[in-house]
Design a protein around this nucleic acid. Structure first.
Length: 405
DNA sequence: TCTGGGGTCCTTCCGCCA
DNA sequence: TCTGTGGCGGAAGGACCC
């Protein structure tokens, strides 16, 4: 029996963080604004009640742009760009600090508004979701001569609901699967609504760059380009076997399907986290010996924050790991699996300290992170030993770990 | 003065063990 | 007893995403 046809929506909030900030600071509408650089650079209220904002020219540090308004993008700055570099291109652009608590609040608001219309949603981060519309009443109804009128009406209702709840616009793509919907939601940004069927793939999808497929990143796109494949259509014209030869069995076969618009992944309405981590990039590179004291304090602080996160979310984890990035941007990780799950900062610190001893620390360090994986619900499983027999246990931690702090 | 922070998933390698 | 094999879990790195 053929699977029932599906209608899957991808909803993406338009320039989400920047739009939330513009609700708060409406006087910035129409101006180039970038969000990024941590929590510094808060606006200052003048004596006459007006607000003074920092500009990019004031910025010193290693931050990157998290989001930019459309006028800022017109000046050649975009998310991921270093703020120092952006300052050269747009020194007068307004700089606002990130406020994740506020973005999370609006995230909850818009998701709740969608659930009112269609309850089956999959969280894909703070500003986007997938929605399974297949069972929404009226979805298959034609409207006048528009065979897809029901789909458009439901999608428009979702957009209206989000707008009412938040004052923000979003873009929606509706197609038979998640892969195509993700592409479709970007076709008419901002405030877009795009419905595609399989019949639209050759005209609407195939002309796009291969990079527009979610899962083809900069590396894969460059390799495809080197093989003479630039568009999704050119990728669809490649033989599956040839793609498997060049990209491996799994990824090659996936590329072949993706280019043809084939994707049967379900909308997943519930998931558990796999890992939780904390990391920080230093204002200046630190040296393991010379900056031992400050490294130790940061290391302890990261473990304490991680422990707080674990407790708040109700998890403990058996695998504790560290991440280091050196001045040459090389990244190394080390992790260790413990006999029992841990949650407390001291236990994390002890395990992470052991991991640290396995790394050559002769190069200057720019980033330090701590991670916990193999998560279990705290309380139910905390302290239980694993089913599998332990590997040879590492020697007991002699105290005086690296980075005392 | 390049390049944040918090995630997921996949591949490869390695050691252990049946 | 020795050697080969394959499964499995853990470790490390990399690509990708928001």
């Amino acid at each position: 029996m053929a699977a029932a046809p599906r209608w899957i929506a991808h909803l993406d909030m338009d320039a989400f963080y920047a739009s939330v900030e513009l609700l708060r600071y409406p006087e910035l509408r129409g101006l180039p604004v970038v969000i990024g650089g941590g929590r510094r650079h808060q606006p200052v209220v003048n004596a006459d009640g007006t607000r003074a904002f920092a500009t990019l020219r004031d910025y010193q540090g290693r931050g990157v742009i998290t989001t930019a308004t459309y006028p800022a993008r017109d000046l050649g700055v975009h998310s991921g760009m270093g703020l120092m570099k952006a300052a050269q291109r747009a020194p007068d652009a307004v700089l606002l600090p990130v406020d994740f608590d506020e973005y999370r609040r609006y995230s909850r608001l818009f998701k709740a508004a969608v659930v009112e219309v269609a309850p089956l949603i999959e969280d894909r981060g703070i500003d986007e979701i997938y929605v399974d519309l297949s069972a929404v009443p009226g979805i298959d109804d034609a409207v006048g001569h528009d065979r897809l009128g029901g789909v458009r009406a439901v999608a428009q209702e979702i957009k209206n609901s989000v707008r009412r709840a938040t004052g923000l616009t979003c873009s929606i793509g509706v197609t038979p699967n998640k892969l195509l919907s993700k592409i479709a939601s970007e076709l008419d940004k901002p405030d877009g609504l795009t419905v595609l069927t399989a019949a639209d793939i050759p005209t609407r999808v195939w002309p796009l760059p291969a990079r527009r497929i979610n899962g083809i990143g900069p590396k894969a796109a460059a390799r495809l380009e080197a093989l003479g494949v630039r568009t999704i259509g050119e990728l669809a014209a490649c033989e599956r076997g040839w793609l498997v030869e060049h990209f491996g069995r799994s990824y090659g076969a996936w590329l072949a399907d993706a280019a043809r618009g084939i994707d049967d992944r379900p909308v997943v309405t519930h998931s558990e986290p796999v890992s939780i981590s904390r990391e920080t990039t230093f204002e200046r590179n630190l040296h393991a010996v010379r900056d031992r004291a400050v490294l130790g304090r940061v290391f302890t602080m990261l473990c304490e924050r991680l422990a707080t996160d674990l407790e708040r979310k109700g998890y403990a984890g058996r695998t504790v790991g560290i991440k280091l990035r050196f001045d040459d941007f090389r990244t190394v990780t080390r992790d260790a699996t413990l006999p029992a799950a841990v949650q407390q900062a001291q236990a994390l610190r002890r395990a992470a300290g052991q991991c640290l001893k396995r790394v050559d620390l002769s190069r200057p360090i720019r980033l330090l992170g701590v991670r916990v994986a193999a998560l279990q619900r705290a309380g139910t499983a905390l302290g239980q030993t694993p089913g599998r027999r332990d590997r040879a246990a590492p020697a007991p931690a002699e105290e005086l770990p690296l980075f005392p702090g």
